[in-house]
């Protein structure tokens, strides 16, 4: 099955049962609908997204699984971080709804045609989407919460070692 796909697409074998196909954003719907309808890869198992902020892109991996659940195909595409938009896959896979809803909330990716892109896990979230790399969770926490008092006597060990060395040196010199 994978051989016939390999003739048509540039599929790379990553592991014995894991394959990868890199496509352009424009041919996304065509490729996915073709592979899911005409090959053995019928199930959408996960939509994984990674934020490559240094290249100004999101890399999305649509992971398809065969009917026998023995091979996985990762279909990778890049979309720009600003104005990230993609057509929905709701027409092919009903399970895409919740995955897209998750990604919409965590990255702010717009899935055109998905009617349920409202709150998933967060409630009344007003900041930038939390999984984007420019969102600094520690800064957010420091702004919104206080931690428990009583731990201010923590010492920086490197500074302490330097101080003690200097002190020992001074004592040695004084003894001389």
């Amino acid at each position: 099955m994978i051989e016939s796909l390999k003739q048509q697409y540039n599929i790379e074998q990553k592991e014995s049962r894991l394959f990868k196909l890199i496509i352009k954003k424009e041919e996304f719907l065509k490729t996915l609908s073709f592979i899911s309808s005409s090959s053995n890869f019928i199930t959408l198992s996960q939509i994984a997204c990674a934020d490559w902020i240094e290249d100004e892109i999101f890399k999305l991996n649509y992971i398809l699984t065969t009917k026998e659940r023995d091979k996985n195909l990762m279909i990778e595409l890049e979309i720009p971080r600003e104005e990230s938009k993609l057509p929905t896959l709701l027409n092919f896979f009903p399970q895409a709804e919740v995955m897209e809803r998750d990604l919409h909330e965590m990255y702010g990716i717009e899935f055109i045609g998905n009617p349920t892109l409202y709150d998933f896990a967060l409630e009344n979230w007003k900041e930038i989407p939390p999984m984007r790399r420019e969102f600094d969770t520690l800064a957010y926490v420091n702004e919104h919460f206080d931690f428990r008092k009583g731990r201010e006597d923590n010492r920086d060990v490197k500074v302490e070692i330097k101080r003690r060395r200097a002190e020992a040196k001074r004592l040695k010199n004084a003894n001389k």
Partner: peptide
Amino acid sequence: EFAYYMAGDGTEKIRRMQVKGPSL
């Protein structure tokens, strides 16, 4: 099936780990 997608970026930190649990 519990599935993880993981991407490394050449540093000591993981760039992305996405979890798909069976009950999603």
